[in-house]
Amino acid sequence: MSQEINCEDFQNLLDALSGEETSAENLSALERHAASCPQCALLLEMRRHLSLPRQDALLSGIPDEYAATMWSRVQEDIDRRGYSSAFAPFRPGAWRRALMPGLAAAALVMILTSLYLFLELGQVKKRERLLATRLERQELILRGLSRGISDAPSVGAPRGFPASLPGGGFLTQGQLTVGELIAYLEKLPRETTLLGPADSQELLSHSPGWPGSRPGARIFSSIDISDGVQAEEIIHLARELELDRGQKISTDLFKAYYGTRKPSDRYRHRDRAL
């Protein structure tokens, strides 16, 4: 091979350098290329430094005491590490294999439990939202009612439910159960006059059309309105008449009454609501 070689050829010849087929001609080609290429010169130098005798020669070159003392050294190391007391050798593999079905079952249980808790959490959150809405509504009702009472000119005034409440307080919700009304009224002083005599009379005189089954109609038709209507009267009558506490009362009745000043307007509005 008299012609010049490139770096790729150089590497191919280098691969063959340790083989039987390496010829003086190849070696000469390598050296010629290396003389003009510093990188390849380094590769040739590296090959020379790395060349070692054949395996059998290398094996025979191992200092005898190194091979002869290896077992005693290993044994000493094992003892020093405290492994010998655990002999036979550790078998964590066997333990792991034995534990595998249990671990798989535990993982499955954890996955199913997580799924159940996730779904349950969704339900809890839903219930919590509903409860929060309900509490908020009741809170608004209570606040409105108490504000109405305290803002009234005086307890016992012709209007205990208050002028400051039209369209607000518990009247803001469409319906109110008898139970809720009673609960609110029980928080008031018993003698609180909710409607004055004139207003009570006026209300009743305009309520012939109230259906008899409605709780409001039953209450107002059974009480003495000469001194107006007090909170305790409504509570007492509700109990006497054994009104269903879950039955709903339309707040339109109250709105109709308190929503305007002129009786004629009030009841026109109320009738429409009914």
């Binding site: 070692l52 395996q55 290398l58 094996l59 191992i62 190194y66 091979a67 290896m70 077992w71 290993v74 044994q75 002999f87 036979a88 050798p89």
Partner: peptide, 27 residues
């Protein structure tokens, strides 16, 4: 055999294979 707990087999492995391992380490 060593997996089964026979320490003597481990000793024989060490004695048999130490030289090739030291040779490789030397390389």
């Amino acid at each position: 055999e060593f997996q089964g707990g026979d320490r003597g087999s481990f000793k024989r492995l060490v004695e048999t294979m130490t030289r090739p391992l030291i040779a490789m380490g030397y390389r």
